[in-house]
Amino acid sequence: QIFVKTLTGKTITLEVEPSDTIENVKAKIQDKEGIPPDQQRLIFAGKQLEDGRTLSDYNIQKESTLHLVL
């Protein structure tokens, strides 16, 4: 699982696999929060994550925290 922290300070927990794409993660966030993926920007280690890449591409491991910017 990974954590996604929103600007409001809320933390969302997501069940993911390293092979999941960023697009996939955004879809999971939409399921939980109702935020359309095209409004979501995910930041990890100061980098904006691209939809077509996977979590493992960015070396995002379990218990990692991503930041969600709208």
Rank of each mutant, 00 (worst) to 15 (best):
residue 20 D to I: 05
residue 64 S to T: 08
residue 57 D to Y: 13
residue 15 E to Q: 11
residue 6 T to W: 14
residue 34 G to K: 06
residue 22 I to W: 02
residue 47 K to M: 15
residue 25 V to L: 12
residue 39 Q to P: 02
residue 52 G to S: 12
residue 44 F to C: 05
residue 29 I to C: 02
residue 69 V to A: 09
residue 5 K to E: 09
residue 66 L to E: 01
residue 2 I to N: 01
residue 17 E to C: 14
residue 56 S to C: 07
residue 17 E to Y: 10
residue 19 S to H: 12
residue 55 L to K: 00
residue 49 L to A: 02
residue 19 S to W: 12
residue 55 L to E: 00
residue 38 D to Y: 11
residue 25 V to Q: 00
residue 61 Q to L: 12
residue 39 Q to S: 08
residue 64 S to V: 07
residue 53 R to W: 10
residue 53 R to G: 07
residue 1 Q to P: 11
residue 1 Q to W: 14
residue 14 L to M: 04
residue 12 I to M: 06
residue 14 L to H: 00
residue 8 T to V: 08
residue 6 T to V: 10
residue 56 S to F: 10
residue 52 G to D: 11
residue 16 V to N: 02
residue 35 I to D: 02
residue 51 D to W: 03
residue 33 E to I: 14
residue 45 A to D: 14
residue 47 K to Y: 09
residue 45 A to T: 05
residue 26 K to P: 00
residue 40 Q to P: 02
residue 63 E to C: 15
residue 57 D to A: 05
residue 44 F to Y: 13
residue 60 I to T: 02
residue 31 D to I: 13
residue 11 T to V: 15
residue 25 V to K: 00
residue 11 T to M: 11
residue 70 L to E: 10
residue 22 I to D: 00
residue 58 Y to L: 06
residue 61 Q to R: 08
residue 22 I to A: 02
residue 67 H to W: 09
residue 53 R to T: 07
residue 28 K to T: 03
residue 45 A to S: 09
residue 8 T to P: 05
residue 43 I to Y: 13
residue 51 D to N: 13
residue 9 G to T: 03
residue 25 V to H: 00
residue 5 K to Q: 12
residue 15 E to H: 12
residue 1 Q to E: 09
residue 70 L to D: 11
residue 59 N to L: 07
residue 63 E to R: 06
residue 62 K to F: 15
residue 24 N to C: 13
residue 23 E to S: 12
residue 26 K to Q: 02
residue 58 Y to T: 02
residue 12 I to A: 02
residue 3 F to A: 04
residue 28 K to F: 06
residue 59 N to D: 09
residue 55 L to I: 10
residue 14 L to Y: 02
residue 10 K to G: 08
residue 16 V to P: 01
residue 21 T to L: 10
residue 7 L to Q: 15
residue 22 I to P: 02
residue 26 K to L: 04
residue 50 E to M: 09
residue 7 L to N: 14
residue 25 V to R: 00
residue 69 V to K: 07
residue 65 T to Q: 06
residue 26 K to D: 00
residue 68 L to A: 02
residue 19 S to V: 06
residue 5 K to C: 15
residue 55 L to H: 00
residue 27 A to N: 12
residue 51 D to Y: 05
residue 52 G to I: 08
residue 57 D to M: 04
residue 45 A to F: 09
residue 57 D to P: 00
residue 44 F to S: 04
residue 51 D to T: 05
residue 21 T to N: 05
residue 31 D to T: 10
residue 5 K to P: 01
residue 8 T to Y: 14
residue 39 Q to N: 09
residue 62 K to I: 14
residue 24 N to Q: 15
residue 21 T to I: 04
residue 19 S to K: 07
residue 1 Q to C: 15
residue 45 A to R: 12
residue 62 K to C: 12
residue 46 G to L: 03
residue 30 Q to P: 01
residue 57 D to C: 04
residue 65 T to K: 05
residue 1 Q to R: 13
residue 26 K to V: 02
residue 14 L to R: 00
residue 65 T to V: 13
residue 24 N to I: 15
residue 3 F to M: 06
residue 57 D to I: 03
residue 2 I to V: 06
residue 41 R to K: 11
residue 28 K to H: 05
residue 17 E to V: 10
residue 44 F to G: 02
residue 48 Q to L: 14
residue 44 F to E: 02
residue 53 R to Q: 09
residue 69 V to E: 11
residue 19 S to G: 11
residue 47 K to T: 14
residue 43 I to C: 14
residue 28 K to L: 10
residue 35 I to L: 06
residue 58 Y to E: 03
residue 32 K to S: 10
residue 48 Q to A: 12
residue 32 K to P: 02
residue 6 T to P: 04
residue 19 S to C: 12
residue 31 D to S: 12
residue 42 L to K: 00
residue 16 V to I: 09
residue 29 I to M: 03
residue 28 K to N: 04
residue 35 I to E: 02
residue 18 P to Q: 08
residue 15 E to P: 06
residue 21 T to P: 05
residue 43 I to D: 05
residue 15 E to S: 11
residue 59 N to R: 07
residue 70 L to P: 10
residue 42 L to P: 01
residue 25 V to E: 00
residue 29 I to T: 01
residue 3 F to V: 06
residue 16 V to S: 04
residue 10 K to V: 09
residue 18 P to S: 10
residue 48 Q to S: 10
residue 47 K to L: 13
residue 45 A to H: 13
residue 70 L to W: 09
residue 32 K to R: 09
residue 53 R to D: 05
residue 65 T to N: 04
residue 30 Q to I: 03
residue 21 T to A: 05
residue 28 K to R: 08
residue 18 P to C: 11
residue 6 T to R: 06
residue 63 E to S: 09
residue 50 E to V: 08
